[in-house]
Design a binder for these strands. Structure first.
Lengths: 193, 193
DNA sequence: CGTTTTCTGGACCGGCGGGTCCACTGTGGT
DNA sequence: ACCACAGTGGACCCGCCGGTCCAGAAAACG
């Protein structure tokens, strides 16, 4: 499908409008009609830019949001070379999710995209990238002699990912970030030895 | 509402039938008609036993499943008094979720019950109970001198809960239990000092 | 027994929401 | 200027699904 500049802009407007809607309150479930209203478009346009309909659109939004998850942690995530940097990263993660509160755009999206292969792929890619940045950070700390070399960087980064995911999940049901903080702090303490 | 013995039995059949259906494959979303077919009942019965319809029924199923989550960890969960006991508990959790695989009944249920207060309450209660058993276990280990007293039992149990939740979430998207294992093992290592 | 209450089956309804269609309006290229 | 094709609006369709209703079977109760 050929897209002119105008077309590109509209397509992007749909994706970002949907994303920003999901970031707001009261977005337990989303319909194409919601998105149409919010983005000031029409059914025709939605199916013009996303011929496969809901799934294709929602996947695009999910990819967009997944990108934000990582970029919101920058520049800290890519430079975990000192304890101070780790702390800054930890704080940025907590701040981001505290601000997000109970509304988890990706969570809602995953709930709607009922376990389609594409949905798994988006989440899988996100977690992979995320974890390898963390693993890299741990490895660098080890090379600098700041983390004992007996620590398994793979396992530690996996535990961080799990802790964050779980912390966010708890945040979604209880509205509290204490679990997220506990998980992050405990793993960092573990790395400190 | 008065329920005869027969009525009780039917009601329970509906709940357990729905639960067992959710435990199986291909249950990305569930409709009342699915449940009707599976449990060999009729619309009339469903609304007879669950006058508030879908939400009431699904909450009942969620409570049932939440109970299973804890009872599946027994007797280990309530007797975390030695490192061997902790290992047995860890193994039982991993085994349970490995067997469950990608199908997370509670996860699906939460996806359908769109953030109703009742849903949060069920999850909140489950996590509270779970975490206090763990905190109790950590405290007992400290009293026995097996865990250093500087460890914050509250934080450690919160981190465990987060790690488990996140591990299960990763399992749901990737099909792998490595994150769950990493989180559990790292926290237990941390407790060991 | 009879009667009252519970239990069961299933036809039916209404609206919600994804998806289709088509006519109309730009816009870019030659 | 024209034409082909991208972009836009919105009416319309239809299957799904939660929920209603009622009639009849079956218990419980006196």
């Amino acid at each position: 499908m050929k897209l002119t500049a105008k077309g590109q802009a509209t397509r992007q407007r749909i994706i970002e409008g949907a994303a920003s809607y999901l970031r707001g309150d009261g977005a337990a479930s989303v319909t194409l009609d919601d998105i149409r209203a919010i983005t000031g478009t029409s059914k025709g346009q939605i199916f013009h830019y996303f011929p496969d309909g809901k799934e294709e659109l929602f996947l695009a939004v999910a990819r967009f949001e997944a990108g934000r998850v990582l970029s919101d942690q920058q520049p800290h995530l890519s430079a975990l070379t000192s304890w101070a940097a780790w702390e800054r990263w930890r704080d940025s993660v907590v701040a981001r999710y505290r601000a997000q509160g109970r509304n988890c755009p990706l969570g809602v999206l995953m709930g709607q995209l009922n376990t389609t292969p594409g949905a798994h792929e988006v989440i899988g890619t996100l977690l992979d990238r995320w974890q390898s940045e963390l693993r890299e950070g741990v490895a660098e700390m080890q090379e600098a002699g700041l983390v004992r070399s007996t620590v398994d960087a793979d396992r530690a980064s996996a535990a961080l990912i799990a802790g964050i995911q779980g912390g966010v999940q708890v945040l979604r049901s209880t509205g509290s970030v204490t679990h997220l903080e506990a998980a992050l702090d405990l793993v960092i303490d573990y790395l400190r030895g």
